[in-house]
Design a protein around this nucleic acid. Sequence first.
RNA 1: GACUCGUUAGCUCAGUCGGUAGAGCAUCUCCCUUUUAAGGAGGUGGUCGAUGGUUCGAAUCCAUCACGGGUCACCA
Length: 506
Amino acid sequence: MLFQDQYQQQRIEKGKALQVLGHNPYRHNIIKDTSTKEFLECYEYVIESELKRDENKNNTVVGRIKFLRHMGKAAFAKIEDEQGLLQIYFSRESIGEAWFDEAKKLVEVGDIISVTGFPFVTKTGELSLHVNTLEVATKSIVPLPEKFHGLQDKELRYRKRYLDMIMNADVRKTFKIRSKIVSEIRHFFEERDFLEVETPMMHPIAGGANAKPFITHHNALGVDRYLRIAPELYLKRLVVGGFEAVFEINRNFRNEGMDQTHNPEFTMIEFYWAYHNYHDLMRLTEEMFDVLLKKLKLPRKLPYGDFEIDFSKPFRKIGFRAALAEIGDIPDQILDDRAQIVTYITNKGFTVEKNLSLGKLYEELFDLFVEEKLIDPTFIMDYPIEISPLARRSEIDPNIAERFELFIAGREIANGFNELNDPLDQYERFAKQLQAKNAGDDEAHEMDEDYVYALGYGLPPTAGQGLGIDRLTMLLTNEMSIKDVILFPAMKPLGESDDLTQKDEE
RNA sequence: GACUCGUUAGCUCAGUCGGUAGAGCAUCUCCCUUUUAAGGAGGUGGUCGAUGGUUCGAAUCCAUCACGGGUCACCA
């Protein structure tokens, strides 16, 4: 049974007492005519006025009590709405003796109240609302955490995000910025005539990325479905169909580990642009960052943790192999020999699988020695073809894909490439992935024959890109954990295991 | 998945060498009509994450488990 706690019981009793007094503790006919912020802005002049009050004004402000100080026959409180805090003052004189004496006992921190009155300035110079009418809008029966230290416990903050939001104004701010980021990105692409689309979240084949999928079951069709790991293959089908610029902002699901930069469901924007190439994508990406920083009023030298990320210059561009040598300080002459690379990695104190292909070894080298050094925005270009199964092959070097990834603060933020539109080449690459999968690589790409068939009708020359919204938000809000930019991050259940498949079998 | 740190009152935290648990805030009873984490006086509140073990005796030592943080692995 809920609400058995002694403090909660006390508050329930107070709610009942309010009801008896004719003050419905869950009123619904509350009209809020002014926000705390509007009140403070509107009556700023009162601070300079001679009387320090303007009794001709009358406003109703509604908010949650965050602080409450009783002083015998008067009281101060701070109420908070979405815009901020406002101090209010009420007394025996202002709201009536009988109601004041009851309210003193029955109205407490956490309650949402409606107050009507006029602006005045206190002795200490704080613009406040002098209450003439006070009504309880919603009685809160669960007490709030301590007012000074607030809610610190990370587990509680993530599990009870609503409480986190009540207690921590910064959290509300972060998620407002997130919303703004998504909105500005959407606007950015719409302005450039990209069409927003929605493609399936439940896929018969988990394609478009190398990742382990979640599996679910569709009863009506009697088939298993995968929660999508990427929308890529559907978006490109749309380009085949004639949409020349499309984008989708939505969730992907990957059944993998969780840490500071990984949540099992995460938000990506993917966009595809026919008759453009990956250089156009890089240009567009830089433009997008430029717009975002402007719209969010962020500095060009953006602080992030211990770093300062320099957005004031054009993003650095460097080839994948050149990055290994120049940024990773890996001797160029070992890069053509698998054995030498393995020796090099081993000598540096890391373990590496000996049988990896050259491309996979490059990827290892990159992850070990280059990635974390890419603090300022950097496009790494021209990836090994075998780790890029959906990207177009370079005409100059068949081992290289016309692909880039954008790194900021040592993390991958975006991945883009010229789309492979040769159906026969795509078929072969899928076949190779299938071999790898059969050899035990459970993250290798699935064969998707319908997709290859779609390419058979002709995918125009197209460039496409994915960009992680969560990581972007972390960057722009200076948050270190993805959990702090996802409203309800994945958490293990408390108590009884909720293994649904097991329940079914029982 | 591995390693590591943590889990004590509603919240934030102390708890010494193993000797039956403490503070602040909140709450309750009083006092207080301009406070700013208001103040003053007095009270209530705990199966010390769970289960075992060691011991005359465990919040404290040991083991296992649960959840969380961090690091690594996998990955975006």
